[in-house]
Amino acid sequence: MSEHPADYTADEIMTVTAARALRDGRTCFVGIGLPSGAANLARATHAPGLVLIYESGTIGTKPDRLPLSIGDGILAETADAVVSVPEIFNYWLQPGRIDVGFLGAAQIDKFGNINTTVIGDYSDPKTRLPGAGGAPEIAASCREVIVIVRQTRRAFVEHVDFITSVGYGSGPGSRERLGLTGAGPGKIITDLGVLEPDPQTCEFTATGLYPGVTLDQARERTGWDLAAAPGLVTLPPPTATELAALRRFTTRAKE
């Protein structure tokens, strides 16, 4: 994008920033699309011991190219274990064994609630989206959730049209009332920077912006009154190593 004069794209710095959020040695339940790219990049760079788990039942999978779907053969062939779909959800996800749930979104609101179901009214939708998949229980049960989504006014809305996966519900106390065992979304990583929940209000605020991105630009692309967190930082650009690893994946995915 033109606002990034350096030799990386907004999508690339987003993916690299998301990968950096995944620490080595942790277990990560990976959604398809942007999360999968970032999780695989993390494993290929600073987090070789990151355990990748996909809802297709592949645990500890180590693909050397990006899977197009969550059930690609490469995921099964390189996994520590392949289990059935009921088992992955009931034994592995539900009890809270997984550290990080990594999700995408079509719409997300200021409390981190995610919509991947419909735009418009449920019974007469303007756009029918794919739906829930594994996301509602990933969002409920992983110890922490990270969301990766491109920041636009259409995606970042005051209220989502449909709550597919719960973030902080209607604010502080919602998750506890609903009996959701995980802590909820800790970060929203976008093509402009990073948002994190305010510890008091649970409302997502800007905590980091990429080099060259201004708070005003982020506010223009957010449907709620986006506040800057105290200590808002400029996030570091991708390193040459990270970019090379990411581009190797992207090239192979297209082969």
């Binding site: 019974s123 449909f162 709550i163 996966s165 719960v166 919602s174």
Partner: peptide, 20 residues
Amino acid sequence: MLRGYRGTGLMEAGGPGRDG
């Protein structure tokens, strides 16, 4: 039985949104 759906629109939706 599972821990699931709580707080989501799916709970009401087989049909429609919030009052469905």
